[in-house]
Computed example of a mutant assay.
Amino acid sequence: MSKSTLESLLPTGAIAAQPSYVVLPRASESSTVYPTVLAFLIDKFPQISPSAWDQRIKEGKVHWQDGQSIDCQSEYAATKRVYYYREVAVEKKVPFTEQILYQDDHKIIVYKPHFLPVTPGGNYVNECLVHRLRIRTGIDTIAPAHRLDKDTAGVMLMTVNPDTRHAYHQLFLDGKIKKTYQAVAELPQDFALNQTMLPHHWTVKNRLERGTPSFIMQIVDGPSNSHSEITLLKINNNLGLFELEPVTGKTHQLRVHMQSLGMPLLHDRFYPRLQAKDDDDFDKPLQLLAQRLQFVDPITNEVNDWCSEGLTM
């Protein structure tokens, strides 16, 4: 698909230019029997009104993987993919720009700014890294090889070629990617270290499970399933600059591990207490940066070592 074609898909309202999809579960995976695709969508996405789904279907915004339109009477078909276009009433622009650090036929190395989601989510449908890169490069097969929270900035690996995408995913599954983060946190009032005692190191291992609400993680009893290596590099008044190496990759792992040390990240709206949902404050980004990404390319066998500028305090 050409760049001009992609640009023509950009809506005047907040409607995603790229479709999302959901796989219809088998009967053994669901406690409900759905007569139609519409009934499933209404139950799956309760935050969207039944009338809104009805209208989207009538406007041709819901279809099967082959592009065939789904109507209000289309029968439920387990394991098939249903494609739809996310919509929000208002989509706020993220006033920061991504940077392409490197590009070849198989991958793109990119710097993602704070506040920009990697893929559509929440109140963001077109303001996401994947869509921006597809528009910018004219390549509609770009997809992320790994996750990075919306609030976190840093270096990311994006795949370009669907035929070799699995090889990059396998790097993460096999633990052959090394990720190094930087963070700034407020030090406890009774913190006894000074510059002459640095660097200071912690090994954090515990069990993380989803809390309430489900996007919040919490430490629970049981065998550890998360592991981070954390080093304090520098102290400036009551702030500390940290280097963090996640050995495992649980959601919000570094944020929760820093909180467990009594040093939650600066401008963290989730930990230690979930703050009321509000518009993003672009002047107060979460002080967490995926600064460095190291791996051996599975296609070219070349050593890759990508690094961004660090945080300041």
Score class of each variant (00 low, 15 high):
170 Q>G: 04
43 D>F: 08
120 P>F: 12
115 F>T: 08
253 Q>M: 10
221 D>M: 03
247 V>G: 04
129 L>Y: 12
19 P>H: 07
288 L>G: 02
274 L>M: 14
294 Q>V: 12
172 F>G: 00
77 A>H: 14
120 P>V: 14
264 P>N: 07
226 S>E: 03
60 G>H: 10
162 P>H: 01
60 G>P: 05
155 V>C: 05
240 G>D: 02
143 A>P: 01
142 I>D: 02
229 E>Q: 12
268 D>G: 11
41 L>T: 08
62 V>A: 11
301 N>L: 11
31 S>T: 08
182 Q>P: 07
88 V>S: 10
174 D>S: 07
281 D>C: 10
1 M>H: 07
145 A>T: 09
87 E>Q: 15
239 L>D: 02
28 S>R: 07
216 I>M: 13
294 Q>R: 01
194 N>Y: 04
304 N>E: 05
258 M>E: 03
156 M>D: 04
211 G>Q: 06
120 P>W: 10
255 R>A: 03
60 G>L: 12
56 R>L: 14
286 L>F: 04
258 M>K: 08
122 G>W: 11
271 Y>P: 00
118 V>K: 03
118 V>C: 04
191 F>I: 06
270 F>Q: 11
222 G>H: 07
273 R>T: 15
11 P>D: 15
231 T>E: 10
150 K>C: 05
142 I>Q: 03
115 F>L: 07
71 D>N: 15
107 K>Q: 12
152 T>Q: 02
181 Y>L: 00
42 I>S: 06
269 R>C: 13
26 R>E: 12
312 T>Y: 03
68 Q>I: 12
241 L>F: 02
164 T>F: 01
102 Y>H: 11
24 L>F: 05
19 P>E: 11
81 R>E: 15
252 H>F: 06
285 P>E: 09
129 L>G: 11
119 T>P: 04
160 V>C: 01
303 V>D: 01
233 L>S: 04
249 G>D: 11
291 Q>P: 03
14 A>Y: 08
72 C>A: 14
267 H>D: 05
105 D>N: 14
123 N>L: 11
148 L>G: 06
240 G>T: 01
274 L>Q: 13
192 A>H: 12
82 V>N: 13
236 N>Q: 09
234 K>Y: 01
178 K>Y: 01
32 T>I: 13
59 E>F: 08
61 K>N: 12
246 P>M: 08
278 D>Q: 13
12 T>I: 13
271 Y>L: 09
276 A>M: 13
110 V>E: 00
276 A>S: 13
264 P>K: 06
39 A>L: 00
173 L>A: 13
134 R>T: 01
82 V>R: 07
168 Y>C: 08
106 H>D: 14
281 D>W: 07
271 Y>T: 03
241 L>Y: 00
266 L>G: 03
202 W>D: 02
296 V>A: 00
202 W>C: 09
